[in-house]
């Protein structure tokens, strides 16, 4: 009963004819707006950038193919012991010198045979995933942060900042990634995964910086940025709340595609003997050591290279899918 009395006056106020002019004015459009929303119901659920991308991505078979490959790969990198019981470092020269693959021994130590040190090729391939994945992801992350930051400064502040940073970008663009990393890494006598990450980051940030600069310049002129400025928003707020969320799309696309490149560059560096060094386990190191026995035991080369190719392919597929999902020009 008390409930009823509270409801009645408000509902009368909403529909009553004896209202002031302004009251009627308000109610008319809001009723209409409500009906419009009802008519849109279900079609346009609220969504953010992430939800937007996910909606696009999940409809693509390419994304799922890449996704499955990458899940396997990342599991391999994180928990190699799930895939093999063998120790990749254990060498038995006497018994297993270039032992042939036993194709039926799935996931066994001798599944893909042995290398010239008598180490299990399968075990080394599984454990080698870690270096590739860490380097790929870390370089991409570092490059995105560094290049994204520099690009944002250049694009947003323009003028001297832009002139300075753009020339710097041009200079670094003149140095091939591989050559630059080669020269830099040579200075280190002891090289770990992190040295390689450093080398690739120093010479790999330019593309991200350029993409970010372009996206920021485009967004900087958007009306909603002007609107924020008119409200009195400072540079920090404008950059982080307005420009970055709208400019990050193309950067993510470029970063995903570039990730594959960093993995193969790491392998190349290790192959050339300037990246990771044995006893570190990496596909590049294994490919390098397999080149001498190519005629006698091609499997020693083929297995790690196949995994390398598959990984690069998976990231490229993912990058393509992400680009299709995020690139507004293709919509």
């Amino acid at each position: 009963m008390p409930d009823k009395t509270t409801v009645t006056p408000s509902s009368v106020a909403g529909a009553g004819p004896g209202q002031t002019g302004s009251g009627v004015d308000v109610s008319a459009p809001s009723v209409a707006a409500a009906s419009e929303l009802a008519s849109m119901g279900g079609v346009n659920k609220p969504r953010s950038l992430g939800q937007d991308a996910w909606r696009e991505l999940r409809a693509r078979p390419m994304f799922w193919t890449a996704g499955i490959l990458l899940v396997v790969l990342i599991l391999m990198a994180a928990f190699p012991f799930l895939f093999t019981g063998a120790d990749p470092g254990h060498a038995d020269l006497r018994n297993h010198y270039l032992g042939d693959p036993q194709w039926t021994h799935l996931f066994q130590e001798d599944w893909f045979g042995y290398n010239k040190q008598g180490q299990s090729v399968w075990a080394r391939t599984v454990y080698g995933a870690r270096a590739s994945v860490i380097i790929g992801i870390c370089v991409t992350f570092a490059v995105t942060v560094l290049g994204g930051f520099l690009g944002m400064i250049a694009g947003y502040f323009g003028g001297w900042w832009d002139a300075l940073l753009s020339r710097l970008t041009d200079i670094f663009f003149g140095i091939p990634l591989l050559l630059g990393a080669l020269v830099l890494l040579q200075a280190f006598t002891h090289r770990t995964v992190w040295t390689v990450v450093l080398g690739l980051t120093v010479f790999g940030w330019m593309q991200i910086a350029r993409v970010m600069r372009g996206a920021v310049i485009t967004q900087k002129q958007a009306d909603f940025v002007t609107a924020a400025r008119a409200l009195g928003a400072g540079n920090g707020r404008i950059l982080l709340k307005h420009i970055l969320p709208n400019a990050i799309g193309p950067v993510i696309v470029v970063a995903t595609i570039a990730l594959a490149g960093y993995i193969s560059t790491e392998a190349t560096l290790s192959y050339l003997g300037i990246g990771l060094q044995p006893p570190a386990i990496s596909w590049g190191v294994d490919i390098a050591s397999a080149k001498d026995v190519l005629r006698d035991a091609p499997h020693v080369l083929l297995v790690p290279s196949t995994f390398l190719s598959l990984t690069v392919l998976a990231f490229i597929l993912l990058g393509d899918a992400v680009r299709d999902a995020l690139d507004p020009k293709l919509r």
């Binding site: 008319a28 209409a32 707006a33 419009e36 008519s39 849109m40 079609v43």
Partner: peptide, 20 residues
């Protein structure tokens, strides 16, 4: 004219102009 132009995915039944 009250209301909004119709959403073509959900055109009102009957006369499309009826809600307005």
């Amino acid at each position: 004219i009250k209301g909004l132009p119709p959403n073509l995915l959900h055109v009102p039944s009957g006369c499309a102009f009826n809600p307005r």
